[in-house]
Design a protein around this nucleic acid. Structure first.
Length: 703
DNA sequence: GGAGAGGGCGTTTTT
DNA sequence: CGCCCTCTCC
C-alpha cells in the first residue's frame, strides 16, 4: 500500500517532500514537523526509485540520523539498506580513514577528543615555557578553546582575542606560536582533533578530483539537518559534496542557532539561496508540538530578541495549562519543588515524557541527589561524559597505542603510571621506540622496572590483535592495580565503569571503529537503556527532542544565562535562543524555576540572585506565577504573603485553587484563566497577552 | 627530572 | 571542592 503523502503532511511539508532535485532550503520553526518532513522526504525518494545508498543524511548527532532512517523504514515498510547518515565529523572520519594517504597519514591516525587536545596543548605550553611565572597567562582549557575557536570561525587568534577576551590580547603572539606548534605536533604524530576532521575532509575534497567525483556519485542526494548550526568549513563541505547540480536539501531554523560558541554561523542558512542559485525556500510555521499558552511564552521570549526573527509560530492546539513560573526561596528548595512537580506530572504522563532542562551539567546535581534518595530513575544527557573519566581514558590510551605507535598523547597517559617516569622521560622513551634505540630503552628499563612490563603488554596487544572486548579485558586486568593505587577511595566504582566499557566494546569487531565511536558519538554510553525514566538534560543536548512536560531550572543571572555570556550582547542573544529552544521542547506542560537565592560554593553562602532577564519580557498574564513562602509551601504569587500579614481574608483576593476556578472568556481580552475571586462580584483573571485584570463577573463567560 | 605538598582561584554549552 | 600552578626535596 503506497504512502498517502497528502494525508500525512501539510501543504508546505508536502512541497518540501515532493521537491524534485536541486537545492532546497527548508526553514522550519520549532515543532513544525521538521523531522517528519525529512523522514517523509526519505520515503518519497525511495518510493520514487532513488536507491537508498544514494542518500546521505548529515545531522547533528548520530542518534538523530539513525532515528530518522529508522522512521523512514517504518513508514516504507522496507529496509533502507545502504543509506548513510551521521554527523559531519563521523562522515569526515569515515572518508579520511579510507583515504589516509591524501591526508599525509598513510599509517593511520588517532583521534583526539577535547580532553586529549587540552592535554597536548598543556604539554606544549610547558615545553615552550609559555606563561611561566605569568599569573594571568590563560590555562590549557582556555587556550584550547581559543585555538579551536580561531579555527572554527576562521579568524586569527588576535581577532578572536579582540572579540571575546580582550584582556588576553597581550598574549596574542604567544598563543599564536602555541597554536602553530600544536598543529605541527599533531601532524607529526598522526593525530587529528575534531577540527582537523572537517578541514581534512575539505582539503581532500578540494584537491582530489577523482575522490570528489566518486563521493558525488555515491551520495547524489544530500540532506543536511540543523543547518543553522553549521560553521564555515561545513558549509564549504556541503558545497563540495553537492557539486554543480547542488542537489542538497538543507533544513534549519535561525531562531534555534545555539552553537555560535563553536563557530556555527547563522549566515550559512541566510546565504544558502545565494550560494546555491535558484534554491527553493520553504518555510514551515505551523507548530504541531505545543499548546497555545506555551507558544505564547516562547514567542514572547523571542520577541525581545535584538535581531527579530520574522517567523511567528502558531498552532491549532488551543487550550492547555498556562506555563508556570515558580520562584523557590533557594536552589536547594528548587530541587524539592521540582521533584514535587515531577511527582505531580508523573500522575498524568509516563516518566520518560517528563524532562528537566538546565544550562550546564552541574546544575542538576541537587536534583539528582533528591531523585536518588527517592529511588526515582533518571537518564542524564550532556555534562560530563563517560569516556572522559580519567580511568576510562587511561584504558583507551593503551588501546590507541596498539593502533598508532606515534600517538604521543596516549604515551603520556600510559607512562604516567610508570613510577619515576614523567613527561620528559616519556618523550625520550617514545623517541627511542619510534627510531629504535635499544640501548636507551635497555637503560631506561633497568632504571624503571615498570616500563618493561608496560612495553611487553603493548607488544602483546599489537601482536595478537585481539577483539575490542578482549583487548579491553586484558588492559583492564593490567590497569586494575594501578587504578586501585591511584584512586584509593572510589576504585570499585571506577572498576564498574571499566566493566561497562568492556560491554560497549563487545559490540565492535574492530578496535579502530570502537575508539573512533567513543570519540565521535556522545551516545556511546555505558548506561543500560532504561525505558521509563525521567530525563535530565542540558538544553544543548535536548535539541531536536520533545516531551509532554518540561521543567527548566536555575533560571537566574549567571547560571542561565551563564556568567560568561552576560557581558557580550551577542552571547546574551544566544542565551535567549537557548531558552527559546528549552521552552519549545514542551508539548503540554512547561514549568520554569527561578530561585531567589543560590548557594555559592566559593563563598560558602547562599546569595541573592536576579532572575533570568528574558523572563522579564514575559507578558504578565502569560505565565502563572508561583512563589515559595518562608513557611515552605508554594502558592500563586502575592497570595500567601498577603494572607500571612492580614488574617482578614474576606476583603482581599486570597489564594485560591486555580483548578477550581477554571477558565473564562472576555469579549475583548479573549480566553483567560481565573486566578482569584475578588468579592463581592469580581474576578482576577490572567489573559494571555494582556496580563492580570480584575473584571466584574457579569462581563465574563465561564468556561 | 619527578613526586608530593601547599596556595590560589574559578564553574558553559559539544563534535 | 577540585584543578592547576609553584615550590621544595629527592
Amino acid at each position: 500500500m503506497p504512502i498517502d503523502f497528502e494525508k500525512e503532511l501539510n501543504p508546505a511539508q508536502l512541497e518540501a517532500v515532493r521537491h524534485d532535485t536541486g537545492p532546497l532550503l527548508v526553514v522550519a520553526g520549532a515543532g513544525s514537523g521538521k523531522t517528519r518532513t525529512i523522514v517523509y522526504r526519505l520515503a518519497w525518494l525511495v518510493e520514487h526509485g532513488v536507491p537508498a545508498e544514494d542518500i546521505l543524511l548529515l545531522t547533528f548527532t548520530r542518534k538523530a540520523a539513525q532515528e530518522m532512517l529508522k522512521r523512514a523504514e517504518e513508514i516504507l515498510k522496507q529496509p533502507l539498506a545502504g543509506a548513510s547518515g551521521g554527523t559531519f565529523h563521523s562522515f569526515a572520519y569515515s572518508v579520511l580513514r579510507r583515504n589516509p594517504v591524501g591526508l599525509g597519514m598513510a599509517g593511520g591516525f588517532s583521534l583526539l577528543d577535547r580532553g586529549d587536545s587540552e592535554d597536548l596543548v598543556g604539554r606544549i605550553k610547558t615545553d615552550l615555557g609559555l606563561g611561566k611565572g605569568e599569573r594571568s597567562f590563560p590555562k590549557k582549557s582556555t587556550l584550547t578553546d581559543l585555538i579551536t575557536k580561531s579555527r572554527n570561525k576562521e579568524l586569527a587568534i588576535a581577532q578572536v582575542l579582540e572579540q571575546e577576551a580582550f584582556h588576553l590580547t597581550p598574549f596574542a603572539g604567544d598563543i599564536e606560536t602555541l597554536a602553530r606548534e600544536y598543529g605541527r605536533f599533531k601532524k607529526e604524530h598522526a593525530l587529528l582533533d575534531y577540527d582537523d576532521l572537517l578541514f581534512g575532509l575539505e582539503a581532500l575534497l578540494a584537491s582530489d578530483q577523482a575522490l570528489r567525483r566518486v563521493l558525488r556519485a555515491r551520495h547524489g542526494y544530500l540532506m543536511v539537518d540543523e543547518y543553522q548550526d553549521t560553521n564555515l568549513v561545513q558549509a564549504r563541505i556541503v558545497r563540495l559534496l553537492a557539486g554543480e547540480a547542488g542537489n542538497v536539501m538543507a533544513v534549519g531554523d535561525d531562531a534555534q542557532s545555539i552553537y555560535a560558541f563553536r563557530g556555527a554561523n547563522v549566515a550559512n542558512i541566510m546565504n544558502f539561496p545565494k550560494i546555491f542559485k535558484d534554491a527553493r525556500v520553504i518555510t514551515l510555521e505551523r507548530n504541531y508540538r505545543s499548546t497555545q499558552p506555551i507558544l505564547d511564552v516562547t514567542n514572547a521570549i523571542l520577541s525581545g530578541a535584538r535581531d527579530k526573527f520574522e517567523k511567528r509560530l502558531y498552532t491549532k492546539r488551543s487550550g492547555g495549562e498556562k506555563p508556570r513560573l515558580v520562584t523557590p526561596l533557594s536552589d536547594q528548595s528548587q530541587a524539592r519543588l521540582a521533584l514535587e512537580r515531577i511527582i505531580e506530572l508523573a500522575r498524568r504522563y509516563p516518566l520518560h515524557e517528563i524532562a528537566v532542562l538546565f544550562r550546564a551539567g552541574y546544575q542538576s546535581y541537587p536534583l539528582e541527589v533528591a531523585l536518588t534518595r527517592l529511588g526515582l530513575s533518571y537518564r542524564k544527557y550532556g555534562g560530563a561524559r563517560f569516556h572522559e573519566a580519567a580511568h576510562v581514558k587511561d584504558v583507551l590510551a593503551y588501546l590507541r597505542l596498539a593502533r598508532n605507535p606515534s600517538d604521543l598523547v596516549a604515551w603520556q597517559r600510559v607512562c604516567a603510571h610508570v613510577k619515576g617516569v614523567g613527561p620528559k622521560t616519556t618523550g625520550r622513551i617514545v623517541r627511542a621506540v619510534l627510531n629504535p634505540d635499544q640501548d636507551y630503552l635497555a637503560k631506561a628499563r633497568k632504571k624503571h622496572p615498570d616500563l618493561t612490563e608496560l612495553l611487553a603488554e603493548l607488544d602483546l596487544l599489537r601482536r595478537t590483535n585481539p577483539s575490542p572486548a578482549r583487548a579491553v579485558e586484558r588492559i583492564n586486568a593490567f590497569y586494575a592495580p594501578k587504578m586501585a593505587e591511584r584512586y584509593p577511595d572510589d576504585h570499585p566504582k571506577r572498576q564498574a565503569g571499566l566493566d561497562q566499557l568492556a560491554q560497549i566494546a563487545a559490540a565492535y569487531s574492530d578496535l579502530e571503529t570502537f575508539l573512533a565511536d567513543l570519540c565521535l558519538d556522545p551516545d556511546t554510553q555505558a548506561e543500560p537503556h532504561r525505558s521509563d525514566c525521567l530525563v535530565l538534560s542540558t538544553v544543548h543536548s535536548a535539541k531536536g527532542l520533545e516531551w509532554k512536560a518540561v521543567l527548566v531550572i536555575d533560571l537566574v543571572e549567571e547560571r542561565f544565562p551563564s556568567k560568561k555570556a552576560m557581558s557580550r550582547d551577542e552571547d546574551l542573544e544566544e542565551e535567549r535562543r537557548l531558552l527559546y529552544v528549552a521552552c519549545t521542547r514542551a508539548k503540554e506542560s512547561l514549568s520554569l524555576f527561578s530561585p531567589a537565592t543560590v548557594f555559592s560554593r566559593f563563598s560558602g553562602f547562599s546569595e541573592t540572585v536576579a532572575p533570568c532577564p528574558f523572563l522579564l519580557d514575559l507578558p504578565p498574564g502569560s505565565v502563572e506565577r508561583w512563589q515559595e513562602s518562608y513557611a515552605g509551601g508554594v502558592s500563586p504569587a502575592g497570595g500567601a504573603a498577603d494572607r500571612d500579614r492580614d488574617p482578614d481574608q474576606g476583603s482581599r483576593p486570597g489564594p485560591v485553587d486555580p483548578a477550581r476556578l477554571g477558565y473564562c472568556r472576555h469579549k475583548i481580552f479573549g480566553q483567560g484563566k481565573i486566578v482569584a475571586k475578588v468579592p463581592p462580584n469580581k474576578f482576577r483573571v490572567n489573559f494571555p497577552g494582556f496580563g492580570l485584570k480584575v473584571i466584574v463577573g457579569d462581563y465574563l463567560e465561564m468556561l
